[in-house]
Amino acid sequence: MSGADTRHPGLNLGQTDAGGHDAAEEVVFGFWVFLMSDMVLFAILFATYATMSTHGQAGGPAPLDLVDLGSALAETLLLLGSSFTFGMASLALKYREGRTRLVAWLALTFVLGAVFVGWEVHDVHVWITQDDAPPQRSGFLSAHYLLTATHGLHVAAGLLWMAVIAVQIGWFGLIREVKLRLMRLALFWHMLDIVWIGIFTFVFLYGAVR
């Protein structure tokens, strides 16, 4: 089980860094398992949202009242865009396109992610001040905020992680440890996209249709 024979789900360093490829096997697999557990957490939050959004409105705002499809679309584009730029960063890592290009893609990812989080905070501000829909108002709103905020917190944590890795790229250069961390952060970042697609669909699109 060495060199390019093994293939991991996710980015494979393969031929360009055989040693790193081998070292990735255990840590990247471990991270997949962690993501699985994290996905269970989100599944629970989605299930809670599903019950609370129908049975827990308590005469307060309904899902439709919170939907601003334009805003949700902008957030979606920001986050999916950041996934694309992270993908470019991963390719820069794999094909050794140099530190500058890698860091540039990462910086772009960071900016898109940060704008996304800012946009979400703005959404929350609008919901609370204009729609009179704070989480304390009803069970539905509690579930709504917990689901979106858990995702938002994950993105924010990803941003912190990205910043730390950026410092490490400057500090250590592209050593194996840093590479492996970037690969795991990439998985984390893409998973958050998948979760967001769930939120976009069930919270916003479905909310608008209902």
């Binding site: 307060g60 304390q136 009803s138 069970g139 709103l141 509690s142």
Partner: peptide, 11 residues
């Protein structure tokens, strides 16, 4: 919040 309270849609 109102996840499990008796009032306001908790369950």
């Amino acid at each position: 919040f109102h996840f499990f309270t008796n009032d306001a849609g908790g369950n």
